[in-house]
């Protein structure tokens, strides 16, 4: 039971991370290898704000905005010139940013592990059946669900969401119908970066922050996005929940081979069903 809840909490964290990656891919066609770096940057920026102001909640609001700004700047200055040059150049560019951010984080905040305690309102544990479960982890689960719901509403029920969906479906046609696609691209990339940073801040009270955290989580995020289907919100939620459980239980039952099997599943999905669970065929 506690194991399953841990998996659920971890899955929600993966969802916050992967939903940005999948939206960026769906809209821009870019596999953003620097996504893990946005996550790490969010975590460190969150710690800085939390330590400076003493408020975790303020960190949860400010850090994602800062990182979204960084994302917007990167999209406009570096990615935009590469859209015409195909996926190889884009992937290489985002790989380069891993190096840059890794060093910047060490420079600004040092190499040691840092953490902050969860806010007072969420400290402590609750009794759950026979065991106990930290309140903060329950908060992460509910927070992830709330973000999923909000994102779904934003995409399905608002004008802006309709524009984004149109862009994901067919950017050229959307541009032909008068949508400023370039601006939507920037907005989506910024939002994706902001979501990764949000995951980073949320993760800090549980897993602490260290400079290599981005690279470590990136591959898991890719697994989620591949299994769920590139470009799909529902897929990213389903993929996150699946990987969250698979990794939590895998570590307990098959400690030696669980990661090998998970990477193997990623490869198999790419080969046999590249659209994943919920994706759709790409042009």
């Amino acid at each position: 039971m506690a194991q399953a809840l841990n998996g659920l909490e971890y899955g929600m964290l993966l969802f916050l991370l992967s939903v940005g990656l999948t939206l960026i891919f769906g809209m821009l066609g870019v596999v953003n290898l620097a996504h893990g770096s946005f996550y790490a940057l969010g975590a460190y920026a969150g710690i800085a704000v939390a330590v400076f102001t003493g408020s975790f909640w303020l960190a949860l609001c400010v850090a994602p905005l800062v990182v979204a700004g960084v994302g917007a700047a990167i999209e406009r200055s570096c990615l935009r010139p590469l859209y015409a040059r195909g996926p190889n150049a884009q992937v290489l560019l985002t790989f380069g940013f891993i190096y840059v951010f890794d060093d910047l984080l060490r420079w600004l905040w040092g190499s040691h592990v840092r953490s902050v305690a969860p806010p007072a309102a969420l400290a402590g544990v609750v009794a759950l059946g026979p065991g106990r479960f930290p309140v903060y982890r329950i908060f992460v689960i509910l927070f992830g669900l709330a973000v999923a719901l909000l994102l779904w509403l934003a995409l399905e029920r608002t004008r802006l969401g309709a524009i984004v969906r149109a862009g994901v479906w067919d950017a050229e046609m959307a541009a032909g119908l008068g949508v400023n696609v370039a601006r939507v691209f920037t907005a989506v990339f910024a939002a994706g970066a902001g979501l990764a940073a949000l995951a980073g801040v949320v993760a800090v009270p549980i897993q602490a922050a260290y400079p290599g955290m981005g690279v470590e989580i990136l591959v898991r995020t890719l697994i989620v996005v591949v299994i769920g289907g590139l470009g799909s919100l529902e897929g990213s939620l389903a993929g996150s929940l699946i990987l969250g459980q698979a990794e939590t239980f895998g570590k307990a039952w098959l400690p030696d081979s669980s990661m090998f099997i998970i990477y193997g599943v990623m490869a198999a999905v790419l080969l046999l069903r590249p659209t994943g669970l919920f994706g759709r065929a790409l042009r």
Partner: peptide, 9 residues
């Protein structure tokens, strides 16, 4: 991108 991610996997 599928080739990139498959080889990575």
């Amino acid at each position: 991108v599928y080739f990139i991610m498959l080889t990575l996997a």
